Simulated assay, not measured.
Amino acid sequence: MSEDTVPAGDPPAVTAVNEAGKSRYVLTCEHASNHIPARYGRLGLTQADLMRHIAWDPGAAALARRLSALLDAPLFLSGYSRLLIDCNRPLGSSTSIPPISESTEIPGNLNLTPAEIAHRAEAYFTPFQKRIARFLDDRTAAGKPTAVLGIHSFTPVYLGVRRIWHAGVLHAREEALAARLVEGLGRDPDLVIGDNEPYRVEPESDYTVPVHGDGRGLPAVLIEVRQDLLTTAADIDAWAERIAASLDERKR
């Protein structure tokens, strides 16, 4: 299945927004959607489960789109649920097609055949990654300054533990951009901003930063905003403004 050929009623594996944007920042949103094709029967889950953070990053797509507009930045959004296959996990990793997410078993991900695993990679993961890779390679060939920002959200409570951070900046090799974002977002004394919290970027369990960023020698970070802070359009606008101001590159 190519990136432009999907069954009727299903979204493309990747949606590109504002590819001609002038910003140096290229945005990705790997967990933009909770869509699962009908033939998978919701992977054995309820519709309520698919609205939870286990299936996607609530609020992340809207935040990414608003930030794209503020920065005049290109943006690439995944079209399918992270439960089908996670676009920010290396193929073959234990969380690429998770049999359990947080404490919820995913029946439709148990005992998969090699053919089904390969199909999901070909249909939903690879088109997303190839589209971003081509775009970044073309920018590099054209000599355009480029930095990669992955836009995510995180659940306020995980396995019963409440998270204290309002947002976090995750990074590996890139420290300057991460420090600028942490400092900028932290100007508000009421906000707790995590530096490599609530997660850390690891090559064994992450894809965007290690591959699209560090692997190309490009600055790359993930921005994580807590999901309960992205529930309204006003919330999303406010966080997009904060992030844009921290990057100091709003569209003129």
Results as ranks from 00 to 15, higher is better:
210 P>I: 12
163 R>D: 00
192 V>L: 13
122 E>L: 11
60 A>N: 04
185 L>D: 05
249 E>Q: 08
7 P>K: 03
181 L>T: 07
23 S>K: 01
135 F>R: 06
46 T>L: 07
246 S>C: 13
205 S>W: 03
142 A>C: 02
194 G>A: 08
231 T>R: 14
37 P>N: 06
4 D>Q: 11
47 Q>H: 06
78 S>P: 00
167 A>R: 03
243 I>K: 05
202 E>P: 01
217 G>S: 09
135 F>E: 00
198 P>Q: 14
233 A>T: 15
145 P>L: 05
121 A>W: 09
20 A>R: 14
28 T>V: 09
152 H>C: 02
67 L>E: 01
163 R>W: 00
119 H>P: 07
192 V>F: 12
79 G>L: 06
129 Q>A: 14
20 A>E: 07
95 T>H: 14
53 H>Y: 12
147 A>S: 14
14 V>D: 12
79 G>T: 05
226 R>H: 09
77 L>A: 07
111 N>S: 13
22 K>F: 06
30 E>C: 08
6 V>W: 12
174 E>P: 02
71 L>W: 02
189 P>W: 02
83 L>F: 07
193 I>A: 09
89 R>V: 00
95 T>F: 07
186 G>W: 00
58 P>V: 04
33 S>P: 02
97 I>P: 05
102 E>Q: 13
38 A>L: 12
245 A>S: 14
90 P>L: 00
209 V>M: 05
86 D>Q: 03
202 E>C: 04
9 G>L: 13
31 H>C: 07
241 E>W: 01
42 R>M: 12
142 A>W: 12
105 E>D: 13
66 R>Q: 15
13 A>Q: 08
150 G>T: 03
226 R>P: 08
127 P>V: 03
80 Y>N: 04
127 P>R: 05
89 R>P: 01
3 E>G: 14
